[in-house]
Computed example of a mutant assay.
Amino acid sequence: MSVGLKISEVAWVYLLSVFVVLYGTRTVGIPRSVMLNGVLIAAAIEFVTVPLAGYLSDIFGRRPLYFFGSVCTIISAWPLFYLVHTGDATVVICTMAVCMSLGHAMLFGPQAAFIPELFGTKVRYSGASLGVQVAAAIGGGLTPMIATSLFASTGRIESVAALMVMLGVITFVATFVAKETYKEHLSAM
């Protein structure tokens, strides 16, 4: 379950910071500086949105933030590429910032509490770590390569958007299956 909770978050940030930058520069023809500024501004905004998401998960629960984040990744996959395809610097930078803050931050903020809370005290560290590291290897390591391969073989960016939707659905389902943990005492788990 922890792999499913992590997979969309890590894939989303790597696709936005690696694949989308390459797509924007090589396919759309956007200057690299615009794409990198989009990542930089999005990351700077996440200095606020990631802790905010963690804080909100302490108030409303981990699952609502995870549902929101995974739904945001699902519904923004296609618009992300269409907006990048406009080539307009302001639109591209705003798109990157919104996608990172609503997709990535809403998943990443509560993650440090949510995933370990799913495991009992005797296996908490190894259980959380194993799931997170497997998801990071797949989502962060393989997903940009899979996206590149999909785009190269189909010639259509929609195939990459479909991959992003699939990963978002995996995280949504994992969130649905996971129990809410934010009000439980860690010693009782």
Rank of each mutant, 00 (worst) to 15 (best):
C72L: 14
P64A: 08
G4R: 05
I59D: 09
I146C: 04
M166Y: 06
S159I: 12
T90Q: 13
K183Q: 14
W78Y: 15
C72K: 10
E184M: 15
V18A: 13
G131R: 00
S70L: 14
G87L: 09
A43H: 04
P79T: 02
G29S: 06
G4D: 03
V34E: 02
T143Q: 01
L163A: 01
T121W: 07
V177W: 05
I157F: 03
G54C: 07
Y182R: 12
P110M: 11
V71M: 02
Y182L: 11
S17E: 01
T148R: 06
T95F: 03
V34T: 09
G109Y: 03
A162P: 07
V20T: 09
S8V: 11
T95I: 08
S129V: 08
Q133V: 07
H85S: 15
R26V: 13
E184Q: 14
V160P: 00
A152G: 13
L65H: 03
V132N: 00
F47Y: 12
V71A: 07
T171G: 09
G38F: 06
V21K: 00
K179I: 13
P116K: 03
Y82M: 15
A152W: 12
T95C: 09
F47T: 10
L36N: 00
A147Q: 02
R63F: 05
G29Y: 09
G109P: 02
G168S: 00
R62I: 09
R62Q: 04
P31G: 14
L80M: 10
I115D: 00
S101L: 09
S187V: 13
V160A: 02
L118K: 06
G131V: 00
A188Y: 11
F47L: 10
K6H: 14
G131N: 00
F119Q: 05
L22F: 11
L5M: 11
F176V: 12
L142E: 00
M189H: 14
A137V: 14
P64Y: 04
T49S: 08
V39Y: 01
V34H: 01
A44V: 13
A113N: 07
V3Y: 02
S76W: 06
L5I: 12
T121Q: 14
M35S: 10
L15S: 04
G54K: 10
V92H: 06
A147E: 01
L15G: 01
F67M: 06
S153N: 14
M100P: 05
L36Y: 03
R124M: 06
P110W: 04
F19N: 01
A136E: 02
E46P: 08
G29M: 12
F119V: 11
S8Q: 06
T90C: 08
R26P: 09
F68H: 01
M100N: 11
T27I: 15
T175P: 09
Y66L: 14
S101H: 08
A162Q: 05
W78M: 14
M166H: 09
L102E: 02
I157W: 01
A112L: 10
T148I: 09
V18Q: 05
M1P: 07
M145I: 14
E184T: 15
P51S: 00
S70F: 06
V160L: 01
S149V: 13
L16Q: 05
L83V: 10
P64E: 04
E46T: 13
K122P: 05
V10S: 01
A77W: 03
E158S: 12
L167Q: 04
P116H: 00
S57Q: 08
V123Q: 08
V91N: 03
S76L: 15
I75W: 02
R62P: 00
F19Y: 06
A178I: 13
A43E: 08
A77P: 03
